[in-house]
Design a protein around this nucleic acid. Structure first.
Length: 410
DNA sequence: ATCCTGAATA
DNA sequence: TATTCAGGAT
């Protein structure tokens, strides 16, 4: 069953067929009416007002689609049923359950936030958007969403979906990246908030309106080919009137990505692979991955004295926001025993990664030619490495492309 | 400016 | 198949 497309479970909403009186309703009331009949309902995090669950869903839904989050949300709650359980957990376990979701700073902030709620707020989330926004990982929009859903606070959200809906409704021509636009759109979002309907608590209106704006952006006012006929704001939408609603929001700055190339050491002994924990900052911070080198030469120098043969595996590209990353795995495999001396060498590689060992020392030990620019040749890690059997990989955080690589060949 | 991934498009 | 794009908080 497709929970995300309202039209699969409900008759299509055709704005044209609505009465003139209905179209004359204020924006918020139109959104609310649409949400009640055509918004997404029944998603796991919509069945509760528990701030812990709503907060978790909002963090997971940042930069991540509903279908992806569904695969993580329940599993996470099973392992951490309460904010106290999450606060008490090792950060390693939190990252393991976040593994594959991406933007791992969210998981680190999530954990810090849980600890702040327990340590500084007696285990209860603040009941206002203002209070929520002071917690790690909760910005203005996420704070407002939680406050609207859980406490019915009359406060505006402004995420990517909402920006799209609003800029189209207004045919807003300025680049939304500017701080002036940001400010203006927050003001618009706040202006459009519903008033308490007669004989109805504001709480319900705020929750429905907030969800409605999100769902409208996700299912009707889509990036490409918006379904204007199905939109409750159809009649007054300036973007639609302009004939090219998909032109909004206006973004003049084009993103340009840099390039980076790295070499990964796949160190395999029998059925196990050697992984290191990455540094506390930078890409894939604190996740487990294959040791990373700037060049094949640097990698070959590091493993030169070791047994086994180096095998070049298929290179692959991984795209991040700010650069295209070409990754070349080199597999070093052997089946003999790991002597204490060799294991010390392997541990030492990690220590070098962490910057704990002087580079000249390494050159001496390996009897290698001195090379300039050696310091940047190995990506930093936090100095921890372990052998992993296939079954061990489930228990730790591993970046998606690395997990995929390991799954395919380990 | 820096984080990651999956979906959409070419 | 390869490339482009979207998406909040810090």
């Amino acid at each position: 069953m497709d929970l995300f497309s309202a039209d699969t479970v409900r008759p299509p909403f055709i704005a044209r067929e609505q009465s003139p009186e209905w179209n004359a309703l204020p924006f918020a009331e139109r959104v609310i009416a649409w949400q009640r009949s055509h918004g997404r309902a029944g998603l796991p995090w919509q069945l509760t007002r528990d701030p812990y669950r709503v907060w978790l869903s909002e963090i997971m839904l940042q930069q991540t689609q509903v279908t992806t989050v569904l695969g993580y949300y329940e599993r996470f709650l099973q392992r951490f049923p309460t904010v106290a359980a999450l606060a008490a957990a090792p950060s390693e376990d939190v990252l393991a359950l976040w593994s594959g979701l991406g933007y791992y700073a969210r998981a680190r902030n999530l954990h810090r936030c849980a600890q702040a709620v327990v340590d500084e707020h007696g285990g209860e989330f603040p009941r206002s958007a203002e209070g929520l926004a002071e917690l790690p990982g909760i910005g203005r929009s996420t704070a407002a969403a939680i406050a609207a859903f859980c406490f019915g606070e009359r406060v505006a959200i402004l995420d990517g979906n909402v920006k799209r809906v609003l800029t189209r409704a207004l045919a807003y021509e300025s680049d939304i990246a500017s701080s002036a636009s940001e400010k203006a759109l927050w003001a618009v979002a706040t202006d459009l908030l519903p008033d308490a309907p007669a004989g109805e608590p504001l709480h319900a209106a705020m929750a429905t309106y907030t969800q409605g704006l999100m769902d409208l952006g996700a299912t009707v006012c889509t990036i490409r080919r918006p379904a204007c006929d199905a939109c409750p704001a159809h009649a007054t939408c300036q973007g639609r009137a302009s004939g090219a609603p998909e032109r909004f929001p206006v973004k003049t700055r084009k993103l340009k990505r840099g390039k980076r190339a790295s070499v990964l050491l796949w160190l395999q002994h029998k059925e196990r692979v050697w992984l290191v924990r990455r540094a506390d900052s930078g890409v894939w911070a604190q996740l487990w991955s294959l040791p990373e080198f700037d060049t094949a030469v640097a990698l070959e120098r590091a493993v030169a004295p070791w047994p086994g043969t180096l095998e070049w595996m298929a290179p692959f590209k991984h795209v991040l926001t700010h650069f295209d990353w070409m990754l070349q795995p080199l597999k070093l495999q052997w089946h003999g025993a790991v002597s204490d001396a060799l294991q010390r060498e392997i541990d030492r590689l990690v220590a070098v990664n962490a910057g704990a060992v002087d580079e000249p020392g390494e050159a001496d030990v390996h009897g290698d030619v001195e090379e300039p620019d050696d310091e940047a040749s190995v990506a930093p890690t936090v100095g921890e490495g372990r052998w992993f059997a296939r079954a061990d990989l489930d228990g730790v955080g591993i970046p998606s492309p690395i997990r995929k690589l390991l799954d395919a060949a380990l």
